[in-house]
Amino acid sequence: MARDVTTDPATLEEAPPPEATDDATAMAARLAEAGRAKRLNERTRMILAYVVLTLFVVIAIGPAFYLISPAFRDSVSLFTYPPEWIPSEPTLDNYRFLFSSTSYVRWAINTLIFAGSTTLLTLATNTMAGYAFARLRFPGRNLLFFVILATLMVPVAAVLAPTYLTVNTIGDWPIIGNWIDIDTYLGLILPSAVSPLGVFMMRQFIETLPDGLYEAARLDGAGEWRIFTKIVLPLIKPALVVLGIFVFMLTWASYLWPLVAATDNEFRVLTVGIASLKGQFVTDWGILAAASLLTIVPVTIVFLFFQKWFVQASMAGALKQ
């Protein structure tokens, strides 16, 4: 029964067998020593763990810091050896060049328009569709949902050519062609707002709201649209925020579709624009660093404020719960 008295089973493992000594005080001393050894061991392990973790953190955020120095110096000075970490003649020339001789501002504005509109469009269409799938009974509902869900993972690349052709074809049509075409905002946005992930997410989320609320609202005379706007939307705000962040992050980071759909500099977005700064053969490192840094900083600041939401949003994409 002595075993039960000891609360820490870990200590027990290290303890000598009870018959080793009859002397109770010696026994206690040995137990204490074993405990100390164990604790010491624990501490080394902990330190090691934090060292490893910190190492990975350095790797994770290091590359961004490695941009700082080149961004504020003359590109030629990068190539001196031994390397000069802190530029002796810091300069804003790279930024001056970025704003005066490239379309950086235009790209940034385009990115905001592109990602912002795609997010709003996705939120609106997906929430409505999610509501229909969650709450409305209509024949063929499950089949339609299944067909839509099947396209969840369709890669942009797999439908790149036909999507390009679709947008191009619509562009040849009268009137609507002025709005939807290659090198138009809508031509860029609409094919980016097709993913059914949000439909799926919203359906899941709206289904968790108690049935009683809809039923009460219907008996209170509210039609579907009023229920949707006055009851459902206010109650799914958190899900809207999560989906919104997710779509925005995904859209502004996207590259392949903007690369082919917005070739005209007037409609080019940041990802394509910055990539174009890296020349085919010769690269102006300073400008590249400056542009990259300038693009990352605001996102990082926003992220630090809303990190909880960001993490949820990224998980929502994978776990869908």
Binding site: P63, A275, T295
Partner: peptide, 12 residues
Amino acid sequence: ALYFPLLAPPIL
């Protein structure tokens, strides 16, 4: 901190 690289577009 580990999440940070995901903030930047793959291109960046």
